[in-house]
């Protein structure tokens, strides 16, 4: 991809981020946003920008970047254009892990790990269900297995809720709807570490994913250790997705839509595709959060609902290609 297109992706993210800082229940002109970011004033707008909007937008950026990369890696590795962490049940499993973790009183630094454990259980379960159905290679069967595992995860969260204190109930609901409204800096820093290191590792494996997308036998003929590579990519993609769930709850369809948008712009090889998906995913989630704030003010629509409204029609169009 040309340098201009990369610049365009970065520019789009910056514009979206500026917009997201300025738009909301109280709208703040761009000039004042700049003042709040650079100056040390403590007028109302300054405080809103620094303590509310800026963490919110930063969290949205890392959530979107993580989900975009996770989706791109899963699609390439599974050779499945419908793969993404939410539809595969990875995010649902992560939500169960996070809810259980918080029910046991774990802090935000450890929640990504319990979420990761939940995500891995979900991945293994989805593959087991697909294999029991006898068609591991059929993208639609694995997807159905993922949706079933996701539904089971939802039920598991409900069961936890039924016996939980009110405070945990609120947390769990928040997780299931997805939100970047209450990001705190330590939480964002934790997520950033997972997304940046996990994403960098995936980018390094980009060439391996290119080879894997030829099919397993052909990849083996090119000297790729197929099983090891698949395991590594799944672990990294699940870890990143789990960290986004711990940070912002269930945000679906971003991992599905974003890689297709980047491919449509002419990016084919996975090193570029992963970086492009990180930038585009960040832009998409920032904009979806803005939409959630402006569609029905002063109420805010949950982020997960907005991304689903965007993603479901897209999913149906992609599914049609299979039928």
């Amino acid at each position: 991809m040309s340098a201009w297109r990369w610049a365009g992706l970065v520019g789009a993210l910056l514009v979206a981020a500026l917009l997201a800082v300025s738009v909301g229940t109280i709208s703040i002109p761009i000039s004042e946003v700049w003042h709040a970011l650079t100056g040390a004033g403590d007028s109302m707008p300054d405080v809103i920008v620094r303590t509310l909007r800026l963490p919110r937008v930063t969290l949205a950026i890392f959530v979107g970047a993580g989900l975009g990369m996770s989706g791109a890696a899963l699609q390439g590795t599974m050779r499945n254009p419908l793969a993404e962490p939410y539809l595969l049940g990875v995010s649902g499993g992560a939500a169960v892990g996070a809810v259980l973790g918080s029910a046991f009183g774990l802090g935000p630094a450890l929640l990504p790990l319990t979420a990761f454990a939940g995500a891995i259980v979900a991945v293994v379960a989805a593959f087991a269900v697909a294999r029991a159905a006898g068609a591991r290679g059929d993208p639609r069967v694995l997807l159905m297995a993922g949706v079933v595992v996701g539904a089971f995860a939802n039920a598991a969260i409900m069961v936890v809720l039924a016996n939980a204190e009110p405070n945990t109930v609120r947390n769990a609901l928040w997780w299931m709807m997805g939100s970047v409204a209450e990001g705190t800096w330590p939480q964002i820093a934790t997520l950033a570490i997972y997304v940046v290191t996990g994403g960098a590792a995936l980018v390094l494996l980009g060439r391996h994913i290119d080879v894997l997308s030829l099919g397993e036998d052909a990849a083996a003929g090119l000297g790729l250790d197929v099983d090891k590579t698949i395991r590594r990519v799944f672990l990294l993609a699940s870890l990143i997705a789990a960290a986004t769930v711990a940070g912002a709850g269930l945000v679906g369809f971003v991992g599905l839509v974003v890689p297709h948008l980047v491919r449509a712009a002419g990016v084919r090889r996975h090193r570029s595709l992963l970086v492009g998906s990180a930038l585009t995913g960040a832009t998409l989630v920032v904009l979806a959060d803005v939409l959630g704030r402006v569609l029905r003010p002063p109420a805010e629509l949950p982020l997960g609902a907005v991304t689903a409204l965007i993603g479901v029609p897209f999913f149906l169009v992609k599914l049609r290609r299979f039928v």
Binding site: G76, R79, V211, S213, A218, G223, R268, R269
Partner: peptide, 24 residues
């Protein structure tokens, strides 16, 4: 090795595809 069947889930350009031969 050129296996019997191979269908790319996500198409590449021919030059990109041939370049994968250098992967090892």
């Amino acid at each position: 090795v050129v296996t019997q069947r191979e269908d790319l889930a996500f198409p590449l350009l021919v030059s990109e595809y041939v370049a994968l031969g250098r992967f090892p």
